[in-house]
Design a protein around this nucleic acid. Structure first.
Length: 509
DNA sequence: ATAGGGTTAG
């Protein structure tokens, strides 16, 4: 920056706070503040605002609260306060990506050798309603409704006008109440807003609409939609309608969803990609993939919106819900041709479709594709940009695949998948797999009349089955008959990582 | 794409 003769200002560092937040560098936040002070840059309220928002984003309400409290008390040793709290729960484990270390060291050289005495604020800053509201959001995020409401009361009692609750503060309270399912109390807050002359806006109403939909009170939502237009003179927008359309899905009414989609367009409100995708969801979830496809085609034709991965996935989901694997695979080919790589949601839908269609062979193909994308290819990073981006599988996807493989007696693959689950910190549902195994395969390989040739062919599968039983903690050829069939034993006995374990087992014989 | 409190799809 200096090379270009440009000097960083307060805004620069507000961006940097956001950068630290996005890169999961909580412990660096305090050094942004210190850097601003060391460079003699004029501090402004937005910096404190950004800081509190960042800590709230990290879910660290202790530091967020302490900043607000220190500001209230007019303390100038804020950096020291934050540093000490930061130290208490410091762990480098979840502090971002090592590769970014150098960048941050350059941006915040003071973070490497922190000054022994953190700098003082040049003057004091009193919190304003924005900062209070940000802290309030922290309470809301943690479901602390009574703290949210108590905060509102405290703000009302403040002497300075800058700290009084405004429409955003009230909307945050409404949101907290709605999240807790307290629609009546939320309506009381809305009434209070009108009464005291802090009028609700479209966002407030949209939050309430969402609340009624979540409570499956679609009639109340429709009523409120009318009320906001007729009484409050706030025209519903595309978000309001998207919420209602989704509300119809929640009560299994795809026809109602379509009606509202059409009503929205009749009112001259342009659908967004979310509107289209939500309507597709209505048809996908009601086993009408062809209708979902029609919506998708209309979305393709609408120049105002761009089809994205979510829309493609919804299309795939529609076919997979019906177990139409071939159609789903064709869609996935098309999405690839259009430059979209399938993601966990795509593969998750497909895995469920394969399970429904009872085509375990498809699961093997899918697992092969997923496995290739799970492996982090260090060498390929700089070269071929054509490589699909690495995939982070989730529990739903891997569990669906493992389930299929266990049912189909693909034990080697099942072990690969559970190993992958452990690598990604997902606890495999051993109890479920054990149940499937016992119910479906416990009599496997027990036929005494099999020919020698057939027994030879089965050897490899049998070894895999034994390894799988070992992992499940079921009696197996390695531990013989002394093994008790106790659901807890397997978990307690086995301590090595799964990968080490089953590879060792497979090479014993 | 790039600070600044509250809402919508997978």
């Amino acid at each position: 920056m200096h090379e270009f003769g440009a000097k960083p200002d307060g805004l620069t560092y507000n961006v940097m706070i956001k950068l630290c937040a996005r890169a999961s560098r909580k412990h660096l936040l305090v050094f942004v503040l210190e850097r601003i002070l060391e460079m003699g840059i004029t501090l402004c309220m937005t910096t404190f605002q950004s800081l509190v928002a960042a800590y709230v984003g990290f879910g660290d309400l202790e530091i967020a609260e302490s900043i607000v409290q220190a500001m209230r008390e007019g303390r100038r040793d804020l950096c020291k306060i934050i540093r000490e709290l930061d130290l208490e729960d410091y762990s480098s484990e979840n502090e971002g990506d090592d590769d970014d270390d150098e960048v941050f060291e350059k941006l915040l050289p003071n973070s490497i050798n922190p000054s022994s005495e953190p700098p003082l604020l040049p003057k004091t800053f009193a919190p304003n309603s924005r900062i209070y509201t940000t802290l309030m959001k922290g309470y809301m995020n943690e479901g602390r409704v009574s703290d949210t409401v108590r905060m509102l009361g405290a703000m009302r009692r403040q002497e300075d006008d800058a700290s009084h609750p405004d429409h955003v503060t009230y909307t945050t309270v409404v949101s907290a109440l709605v999240k807790a399912g307290s629609m009546d109390r939320a309506r009381q807050v809305l009434a209070e807003m009108t009464r005291i002359g802090v009028p609700a806006n479209r966002i407030t109403y949209n939050i309430l609409l969402k609340g009624y939909c979540q409570q499956l009170q679609i009639d109340k939502a429709k009523e409120l939609l009318r009320e906001m237009a007729d009484d409050a003179k706030i025209e519903p927008d595309v978000v309001s309608y998207n919420i209602l359309i989704d509300g119809f899905i929640l009560i299994d009414d795809s026809a109602g969803a379509l009606t509202f989609f059409n009503e929205m367009r009749a009112r001259g409100i342009a659908p967004t990609k979310i509107s289209y995708t939500t309507l597709m969801k209505a048809f996908a979830l009601s086993s009408q993939p062809k209708l979902a496809n029609k919506v998708f085609d209309e979305m393709l034709r609408d120049p105002r919106v761009k089809v994205d991965i979510v829309a493609w996935n919804m299309l795939v989901e529609g076919y997979c819900r019906m177990g139409l694997v071939e159609e789903a695979k064709r869609i996935i080919e098309r999405m690839k041709e259009n430059g979209f790589y399938p993601n966990v949601a795509t593969y998750g839908s497909l895995a469920n479709g394969i399970s429904l269609a009872r085509k375990p062979g498809e699961a093997l193909l899918l697992w092969k594709e997923i496995k290739e994308r799970c492996e982090v290819k260090k060498e390929g990073v700089n070269a071929d940009s054509d490589l699909p981006p690495p995939l982070k599988p989730d529990e739903e996807l891997l569990d669906a695949l493992a389930d299929i493989c266990v049912r189909a007696a693909f034990f080697r693959k099942a072990l690969e998948i559970v190993a992958c689950m452990e690598e990604h910190g997902i606890p495999p549902n051993k109890t479920k797999y054990k149940k499937i195994y016992v119910e479906m395969h416990s009599r496997m390989f027990t036929s005494k009349h099999a020919s020698q040739a057939r027994q030879d062919r089965r050897r490899e599968r049998k070894r895999a089955a034994e390894a799988f039983k070992f992992w499940l903690g079921l009696p197996n050829s390695y531990y013989g008959s002394e093994w008790r069939l106790d659901p807890m034993d397997g978990d307690e006995y086995i301590t090595a990582t799964l990968k080490e374990r089953f590879y060792t087992v497979l090479t014993i014989q």
